[in-house]
Each structure stands twice: as C-alpha cells, then as structure tokens.
Design a protein around this nucleic acid. Sequence first.
DNA 1: TTCTGTGAAACCATTCACAGCC
DNA 2: GGCTGTGAATGGTTTCACAGAA
Lengths: 262, 262
Amino acid sequence: MTVHPPGPTDGAPTGATDGTAQLVGAPRARVPEARVPEATVARLAVYLRVLGDLAAAGGDTVSSEDLSAAAGVNSAKLRKDLSYIGSNGTRGVGYEVSRLIRQIEQVLGLTQRHAVALVGVGNLGHALAGYGGFAGRGFPLCALFDTDPELVGTRINGIEVRHVDRVGEACRQLGVTIGVIATPSVAAQAVCDQLVAAGVRSILNFAPAVLQVPERVEVRKVDLAVELQILSFHVARRHGGNGSGVNGSAVSGAALGAVVGQ
Amino acid sequence: MTVHPPGPTDGAPTGATDGTAQLVGAPRARVPEARVPEATVARLAVYLRVLGDLAAAGGDTVSSEDLSAAAGVNSAKLRKDLSYIGSNGTRGVGYEVSRLIRQIEQVLGLTQRHAVALVGVGNLGHALAGYGGFAGRGFPLCALFDTDPELVGTRINGIEVRHVDRVGEACRQLGVTIGVIATPSVAAQAVCDQLVAAGVRSILNFAPAVLQVPERVEVRKVDLAVELQILSFHVARRHGGNGSGVNGSAVSGAALGAVVGQ
DNA sequence: TTCTGTGAAACCATTCACAGCC
DNA sequence: GGCTGTGAATGGTTTCACAGAA
C-alpha cells in the first residue's frame, strides 16, 4: 500500500521541548499547542501527504481552497484545522507549503523517530513487512515476530523474524514505541499484553478482535470486515428497496472467529 | 464484567454524505428504519462479531453490560445504538443473541450478497486476495485485476487475474457492488473512475490517494501511514515534554515519488 | 429488583459568515 | 479584491439519569 511523499524534514530542533507550550519569545517556530481535536489530527496526516505532492510539483504557496479540494474536504474545515496548530497562512495569499509541512510534522510528532514492531508474519503481516512505507515515512520497522518455526529465523526485507516469546525483551531493547498486530484474532490479546508489558504505548491492530488495554495505551483498529459491512449498509440504503443487482441470498448465521489473513 | 474502555478507533470520515434514508421492505423482521447514525453503523459491525463469538460459545442471552464490555464501549452507548434499530431486548433480562444477530445483519444489508472486485494484486492486494474473510463473511471476492502481464491469467485462490482494462465489463457482468482498490496511488483515480463507470457504488481504498467521486458513491479509506501518524501524535502527546526514549533524529528530507508497496 | 429504552444535558465537530490583513 | 482566522450557529454523538417493563 502506500506511498509517498512528504518528507519529513525538519529540522530545527526547535529549541526545547515540545509537548507543552511555551510562548514567549522563541526560536523561529512558534508552537501554540492548544488542543488539537482528534478529528483534526486524522486530517492533518492527509493534508501532509497532499502538501508533499505539491512540494514535489514545485508548489510554493497554496490557498485553503486548493489544498482542501485536493484533500477532499471543504475549505472552512481546512482553515479551522490549521488554525488549531497556529496561524500559518498569509491573508490574501495562502499558505507557504514548506512551512506548513514542517508545522504539521511537528504537531504529529514526526520529528521524532518511532521504532515499529510487527507481530504476525502471515499473509497480511508479510505484505506489511514488505511494504516500504514504514521506513520511508519515518517509521522504521525494526522487529518482526511470529510463532511459526518455519518463519522464525528467516529474514524479510533484511529484518530477522524472531519468536514471539521474545517480544518483550526485543521491544524494550530496541525502544519500540509502536506495535502492529497482524496475528490471527485468537492470539491478538496475548500479544497485545506482551507489547504493553514491554512499554509499548501505541498499537495498530489488524486482527478482528477488541483489545483490552490499560487506558494509557492508544489502540487503533483496522478491520476489513467492519469496513465492508459499513459499505454494505450504504449499498443497501442507497439502492433502497430495489433489488438492483442480483439475488438476496442470506449469509451464514453467526459469524465467528474470523482470522486475519494469515 | 467491567473492563476498561479502550480508547480507540473511529472511523474515517470519508467523503460523501448521504441523503436520505428509507427502506421499506417487510420480510419477516420488523424494520423500524429510522435513521441510523453513521457512528452507530460502524459499531454495529463490531457488536455483530462479538455476538458471533457469544453464539458460538452457546450464549443465549446477553446483557448490555456484558456485550458492551466485550465490544469495548460503555453500556449506555450500546443501548442507544441498539435502540436505533428497534427495541430488541427484554427489560430485566437482556438481549436474545440470535435475534440480535439477525436484526443487525438485516440493518447492515448482510442478508444480501455483495460481490467484491479487487484491483491491484501486488503486495497488499495479494494478501487480501488470500484472506479468507471475504467469502466467509458474505463478501465473495469474484474478480481480480492487475496490469502486470506476469500476473494476468494466473489464479489466486481459484480466481483468475484479469487485465485491468476489463474492469468495467467484468464488474457489470458479475454484478459487483463493492470495489477494493489496492493499486499504487498513481493508478488509483483511474481505476476508481472505471469502477464508478461500471456502476460500483461503494469503494474501499487502500491506496494513499484522495479519490474524487460523484456523491452517490461511498468511499472508505484505509491508510496505513495515516494510522501511524495518528499514533505518533499520541505518543508525542502522552510522553509529554519528556524525551523519554531515545533520540529525536529527524527523518529524511522531502520525498516524492509515490509508490504503493507493490 | 434487574436491566432496557430514552428524553435531556453535555460534549465535540462542522459549517456559516464576516472581520481583518495583505 | 482575495484569502485567512475565528466567533457564533448548527448539527451530530456521547453521556447521564431515570421511567417503566419483566
């Protein structure tokens, strides 16, 4: 999957910490740090990609109108989103592309490196491991784990696959901050517990299971079945009462243990 | 019981909105059909999986407290969600598992078959094609497409890979209602246009690109980079001002060329 | 008594519309 | 004139708290 662009850059060690705001006469970049709404955070990542494309195309400045169109939102929303991270535009002109990129990277914490560990090198996990986007976007994949003896010891993209029992030890050693779970759903909770015990505070979960975690840990879920079912809802609603397509064969009753592609 | 509320997730907003809602129909189940909020739809899919597990375990009835804990939400939210699809519980007792499953499937449109076409059989696409979850959950994958001559003509999981030029023709023929895009991002918009022209009304997009579609088409996006960046934001926020872990090495400079992992 | 169903309140997010700067 | 930044209005979602059925 993925992609490209923007590159993080960055640089300036912005003076001091981040996290909190300190205003006062500062270095060059002012970090207003207020409270960025969750919904806005998700869109900032999208703006960042679009800005990367613009920068690559040689764009210098961009208006909220153009940027929002490229990002698939309306301009008022974009302006409001950007206002949460400080006033970065020039009235009558627009936003300076490179400055905005730096600002968003700063807010998203992309000026820091985040080591990523992936557990479950099956069907999907293998595809993710082969995906170049991790490293290219500042998220170096630094460890792979599985239980399959056939896999343990092999290398994918130059990274050795270790046995899952080593998760805790390895994550601590490598300073992993983000864990990715791509195991069958039955194993997900156990793996999650190990990651949490190893100090991982953020988890991206591809297994179709609800993970129970302490509240300091942030979990995001990517669930193919859920996405398809949401689309199904809209198909049913849109085509209204008609049976547009074909048949209406019922699905199996209770679905159960779904297994991540592995 | 009790469990913590994990914190997570949330669906991606995605473009188009809707318009109306109405349905008529009257098979056996009573379909109250009011207006089911978008956020609720996403959770119904989760409840459905949990209910499947319960049914498999022989559960007969379940309380909102237990079901909500297993689904990772609080009980008031669960009850409100279920109230949107009709009153299906018994006060003082709980919900009848099998009845609730039927009811949710009904609302999500899962009593109808949805043929799925997948475009882009690269790294990720291949993994998705090999994933059994499609068919097992009522979404038979019925067509695969790619441009690579090495792939066209081969079979994956018994399904022939066709050339992408045939998308329109094949989708119409097979009655495809859901299209999945797993191509490099540069190709995504063109593929999307072809799917839309073929009458596909719902698209699941794994390519990191913003698709422009007519508003009758529903698009949902799954973007690994965006997910990681959101997690990055939380890592930065949580660990606050501290430099907790390690380094803060900046990432590479401006990147460009986009290439999906394929 | 237990547990659902639901108004009402609180909260968050989006959109509007315009003041203010270029 | 063009375009950003933002209060105010609107709309959607979550939480509260309790009436009422079993």
